[in-house]
């Protein structure tokens, strides 16, 4: 067998390299801030900190699973084992050089996390999982370099803003004003949870990343940044997939060694 090393993503640009880096589960995302477990729970708003996890079904041990060779070998996640509800965290990524694009959240999430359900829409990306599993994943998503306090929003509802101009402080528009810029501290602060319910005390999520730095770490192609059309290798890759899909649809036997 030829030597094989996972390669994750094609392309010759810096943006493509960033994509490869974030998708690669062996790359440890840089931790930039610490959000306490309780604050994370409050930001998501599914339960009160310290409250027991609610369940959607009894723990698997009590439930007694049907005889199935797959259930016998596939280890359930801790949340599934306990019968946790399935809950979500949802992000909005500004088109202005946010670290991730919506699709990147899915590619990266499915490479790195087990038992997650990620949906991609233009202006929001929900990640759903059993509640205690979700909290672990959410921690990494909020504490590391892929979360920029100004251009990424934790938004469960009324997500609008990803394609709107940034405000005078460089923050993405948020109709519910969940986050604000604290000029004194120079930090972004959440005053409402992800669906817009006021928090009993504010949660600071850190300083916005400088524009120059964002341009370096982004996985977004932009004509005023790194343009997609300049990554010839990636364009050829996309065209290749399109060509192979189309020709295979005509006659798969004729697509050989291409």
């Amino acid at each position: 067998m030829v030597e094989y090393k996972p390669q994750y993503y094609p392309g010759g640009s810096n943006v493509a390299a960033n994509r490869r880096k974030y998708i690669d589960p062996n790359y440890k995302l840089r931790k930039l801030r610490t959000i306490s477990d309780d604050d994370l729970v409050r930001l998501m708003g599914h339960r009160v900190p310290g409250e027991a996890y609610k369940s959607v079904h009894p723990p698997l041990e009590e439930l007694g699973e049907p005889t199935c060779p797959i259930r016998e070998i596939v280890e359930p996640t801790p949340g599934a084992k306990a019968g946790d509800r399935i809950r979500y965290i949802q992000f909005t990524d500004s088109v202005y050089f946010a670290p991730l694009t919506p699709y990147m959240r899915a590619w990266m999430g499915h490479m790195r996390y087990r038992g997650v359900d990620i949906g991609v829409l233009s202006g929001r990306v929900p990640l759903e999982a059993r509640e205690r599993d979700l909290e672990k994943v959410a921690k990494e998503l909020v504490e590391t370099e892929i979360f920029d306090p100004a251009r990424v929003g934790i938004r469960g509802a009324t997500v609008h803003g990803h394609a709107l101009r940034l405000d005078e402080n460089g923050l993405m528009f948020d109709a519910l004003r969940r986050f604000q810029y604290d000029k004194n501290k120079g930090e972004v602060v959440y005053v409402k949870d992800q669906v817009g319910v006021p928090l009993d005390r504010p949660i600071y999520v850190g300083k916005p990343t400088p524009e120059e730095e964002l341009r370096k770490i982004t996985s977004q192609f932009r004509v005023d940044g790194e343009a997609f059309r300049n990554d010839k290798e990636l364009i050829e890759f996309v065209q290749r997939i399109h060509m192979l899909r189309t020709e295979a649809g005509f006659d798969p036997n004729k697509v050989k060694d291409l």
Binding site: L60, I70, R71, V74, E75, P76, T77, G79, A80, I86, A106, H110, R114, G115, V116, D117, I118, G119, E128, A129, R130, D133
Partner: peptide
């Protein structure tokens, strides 16, 4: 693997 680990059917389309 995904639906089995989460013991949940909703992950299938993703």
């Amino acid at each position: 693997i995904t639906c089995g680990a989460a013991r949940s059917m909703q992950h299938a389309p993703s």
